[in-house]
Amino acid sequence: MRFIDSHCHLDFSEFNGQREAIIANAQALGVEQFIVPGISLAQSQQLLDFSQHHGPIHIGAGLHPYFLSQHASEHIVGLGELATAHKHRWCAIGECGLDRSIGEMDKQVALFEAQIALANELALPLIVHHRQSHDLIAASFKRCRPRYGGVIHAFSGSEQVAKYYIKLGFKLGVGGTITYARSVKTQQALRSVAIEHLLLESDAPSMPLCGYQGQINTPERIPQVFIALARLLQCQDLSALSEQLYFNCLAFLRK
């Protein structure tokens, strides 16, 4: 079986000194490719070099709401210039989105909608972060409709929310969240949608699976996320499921 980790931050310092070993171990487990999102203007620039030295990596350019304090107003202009200058190097715009735990929602919304517009301009999908913000994201999508879909990273929410995103052309990122008993609503939502709308992700070094709390998460856990999803969907044909999920990610990457 083969997999793609649709969302991991392999460039983060948590992996310094062990990055190549982690990538090799993940590949030995069938995780063939990795998508690394952008989180700031400077880091997005650095990803251009990073992706050429660390395995089969696809990269995004984005301003992540969690790092809001690092984003100056002119950075969205810089991101546009960077993304346009290297248009064929990016698989997506993002990680972008809205996060109620951060505050400064006006600034977040302005940056998010500017990135939606940039993705539309460059005909690229979006990698969307959410935290207690599905309603705010829907409002932004109404004002600035995304034309090329994308993925809702680390999806959690109801069946209604899941189908709203899918109708707009988005796929749903499935990670360690589903391994926790408390994620009943998300589990029910994932059961309600067709498999072709799902992607596997680790969100390494974050989002550890149940049983690994407090540990650095890595793409090596993707097969375990896959097994958890197969059990959730009561899928017996694991090879067919893995191929569908792999194809889903290739479709996101337009490969």
Rank of each mutant, 00 (worst) to 15 (best):
S140C: 14
I216D: 09
A181V: 15
I227E: 14
E159T: 13
L229V: 04
G150D: 04
S156M: 13
R145Q: 14
V161P: 05
Q188T: 15
E220I: 04
K142E: 15
A228G: 12
S192K: 04
S156E: 11
Q160H: 11
E201M: 01
Q187L: 09
V193H: 03
C210I: 04
Y165K: 01
T186Q: 04
Q187F: 03
R131P: 12
F170C: 11
L198G: 05
F141W: 09
D135F: 05
D135Y: 07
Y180S: 11
F141G: 10
Y148I: 09
Y165E: 03
E220N: 06
A162Q: 02
S133L: 04
Y212F: 14
R145V: 14
R191F: 01
S183Y: 05
F226M: 07
S156W: 06
R143K: 14
Y148N: 10
S202K: 02
L168G: 08
G214F: 07
G173L: 00
S158E: 00
S183F: 10
C210L: 08
V193P: 03
I137Y: 09
E159K: 13
F170V: 09
K142Y: 15
L198M: 12
S206H: 13
Q132E: 14
E220T: 10
P223H: 09
S206D: 15
E220H: 05
G150H: 04
P223V: 09
L168T: 10
A189T: 00
L199N: 12
R221L: 12
K163G: 02
P223Q: 08
T186L: 05
Y180T: 09
A228Y: 11
Q160P: 08
T179E: 12
V161A: 11
V225F: 07
F170Y: 09
Q187H: 08
F141S: 08
C144F: 14
G176W: 02
L200H: 00
R131K: 15
Q224K: 13
A139C: 13
G175S: 05
R182L: 14
L198V: 07
G175V: 00
V128I: 08
S183G: 08
A204H: 05
A154W: 01
S133R: 05
I178M: 09
V184N: 07
V128C: 06
G211N: 06
D135T: 08
Q187C: 13
A181L: 15
Y164Q: 01
G149V: 01
H134G: 00
A138K: 15
P208Y: 10
V128D: 02
